[in-house]
Structures are given as C-alpha cells and as structure tokens.
C-alpha cells in the first residue's frame, strides 16, 4: 500500500535531503571546473528562497495553514538588515539575530489575529498583513521608498568583510539552509509536530484530546517567521539591495508555488521546488519575453498530474521499483 501524503509527512525522507545537500556542496567546485561562474550566485539566491519556502512548508504543509503573506517576512528580515547596515550597525552578529527576532515578533503578533480565522479568511488576512508591510516599505523615504535601498556594503563578521567572498557567502547560505532543514525535520517528527499535523487533519479531535491548537499553530507560525527572517537577512546581503518588491504578494504566491511544486509537507521538496521553480523561470525568461504565459500553465499541469509534487513522484517511483522486485 502506498502511504498517504499525511503518513509520509509524519516521516520526512532524509535521503533526498542528504543528496540535495551533497550536490549543493559541490556546486562551487563544479562552477570552477566548468567555468560557469554565474552558478554560484544563482544557486545562492535559489537557496535563499528555498529556505523561505521550507519555512512556509512548516505552516502550509504540516500545519495546513495557507499563509499568503510569507514574502512579507522575507521583506522584514531584509529591511531590518538593510537599515542596520545603512545606519552603520551592519555586523552579522547583530543583523542576523535581530532580523530573525523582528520577524518572529511580527509572525507572533499577526498570528494572534490571523490564526483565529480559518480557510479563505485566513488567506485574506495573511495577504492583508503582507500588503501592509509592502506599503510600509514603500513609505520608508529615508530608506529609498518605492525605489528600494542600495546597501553600501554587506554585513561584516566581527568587523571583517568575510561575506564579500562569493564562495564564503555561498557556504554560509548552504549551512543556514541545511541547519533549518534539519531543524524542521526534527520538529515535524517531534511531539509538537505530530500535534500540528494532527490538527491539520482534525482540529476538533486534537482539541478534544486536550491540545490548545491555537497555541501550537502560533508557535509553528512564529518559528516559521523566524526562519523566513533568516532568508531575508541573506537576501539583503546577497543582492546588496532591499526593495518593497521583496514583500509583494506575487513573491508570496511564488513561495506557495515552490512548496506545491516540491510536494506539500515534504520539506526537502520545498527546496527542490524552489530550484525547479527558479531554474524554470530563469530558462523560460531567456527564451521569450512572455515566459509567464508558458510558466503558469506548465506548473498547474505538473501539479495536477504528479498529485503531490516532485517528492510524491519520487515516492511513487520508489514504490513501483519496490513492487517490481517483490
């Protein structure tokens, strides 16, 4: 019997995560050997969005909460870092924890309101909070307003400009991604994660078992926001630029697409989904100006036919092979 998506989500696969990590660790070497120097910054950027998609997968995939304002958290993290750098407080030891803290606070406070609602209302409220941040960023005239803010430099580490090195920054991003992937996998399999998953399937049952579902979701939402804040910190440094567009609802939609593409709740799938999404975007936008016309339907067709994204496809292939042997 093929396990249902829910059962599979209770036990995230480690194999693909390790494989992904290994391949990513070798990218800089491959780029040197093949002379494809643009691979490193491209993959860095994709990993940053993969981290955000992963954090979204915790609430969307495991918690069943379709948050449509997740990009706002990237935006808040990026602006926190950007403003600190601009104001001369740009050390990683300050920027990184503060970006995560501000995002955690934002997620907590908005979660207090949003998590009281369900279904479409929840989607609309998270979207509204996201737009609030988008417009707030536009009104930061001191920090570029509409046009965004170009940063004078990247964050330092204890005063040293380590992060200017592309390879160092690449590996910092990779380590952040893998640590978060590991942490989320642990959380999903923990008691807390089991309650979060149970509440996605049957909220009343979990409440009748004595669990405070609201508190559990709020905690997951806050942890997720904190991780998105980390991706914001990385993005601001990578692009050396912050802009309201980071927080736009289109970006939130992209993140949801990445998660769906990879297979909702599969965790490593969110990383794979981010790569598939952004590489496809990169490839198609090179082909034609109207790439979105091809891109949209392509994704919808894929999701319809794979019934659960890349990860599900892999599970099914794996099962087929298993049955062939037995």
């Amino acid at each position: 019997m093929i396990p249902s998506a829910g059962a599979a989500q209770a036990h995230p696969m480690q194999g693909p995560a390790i494989f992904l990590g290994s391949v990513l660790a070798l990218i800089p070497l491959a780029s040197v050997l093949t002379g494809q120097s643009h691979w490193v910054p491209l993959c860095t950027q994709i990993m940053i969005f993969a981290l955000a998609a992963l954090s979204l997968d915790l609430v969307l995939g495991i918690g069943g909460l379709v948050s449509f304002g997740h990009a706002a958290l990237i935006g808040i993290g990026a602006y926190t870092t950007g403003i600190l750098i601009k104001e001369g407080w740009g050390d990683t030891l300050l920027c990184l924890p503060l970006s995560m803290l501000v995002c955690a606070c934002f997620a907590y406070v908005t979660g207090l309101v949003a998590l009281k609602t369900r279904g479409v209302t929840f989607i609309m409220i998270t979207l509204a909070f996201g737009q609030m941040i988008y417009f707030a960023a536009q009104s930061l005239y001191r920090y570029g307003g509409d046009d965004g803010l170009t940063l004078p430099k990247r964050a330092t580490v204890l005063g040293q400009a380590f992060l200017n090195n592309k390879i160092v920054f690449y590996y910092l991003t990779l380590i952040c991604l893998l640590l978060c992937l590991f942490a989320v996998m642990r959380i999903v399999q923990s008691r807390f994660g089991r309650v979060l998953l149970g509440a996605r399937d049957n909220e009343i049952r979990m409440t009748a078992l004595g669990y405070d579902v609201f508190r559990v979701r709020l905690k997951a939402y806050t942890i997720s926001g904190m991780m998105a804040g980390l991706s914001g910190f990385l993005l601001a440094n990578q692009t050396e630029f912050v802009s309201p567009a980071f927080a736009s609802w289109q970006r939130s939609g992209d993140l949801i697409f990445m998660v769906i593409l990879g297979g909702v709740g599969s965790l490593w799938g969110a990383v794979a989904g981010a790569f598939a999404f952004m590489l496809l975007e990169e490839g198609l936008s090179g082909l034609t100006e109207n790439w979105k016309v091809i891109f949209g339907p392509l994704i919808i067709v894929f999701v319809l036919f794979s019934q659960g994204g890349l990860s599900r496809l892999l599970v099914l292939l794996h099962k087929d092979r298993g049955q062939g042997h037995g």
Binding site: G6, A7, G198, D201, G210
Partner: peptide, 25 residues
C-alpha cells in the same frame, strides 16, 4: 486523525497527559 496510524492516534492521546506533551525535538 485519518492520515496517521492507529498507534499514532492513541499515542497522541497518551502524549497529551504525559510530561512535556509538546516537546519540539
């Protein structure tokens, strides 16, 4: 909880009154 196993369903109940029912790790 239909997507979890029979054992996991009951374990969720046992967990609820156990020490540290919402352990994260």
């Amino acid at each position: 909880v239909g997507s979890l196993t029979v054992l996991d369903n009951v374990a969720l109940a046992v967990q609820s009154i156990a020490h540290n029912p919402l352990d994260l790790w």
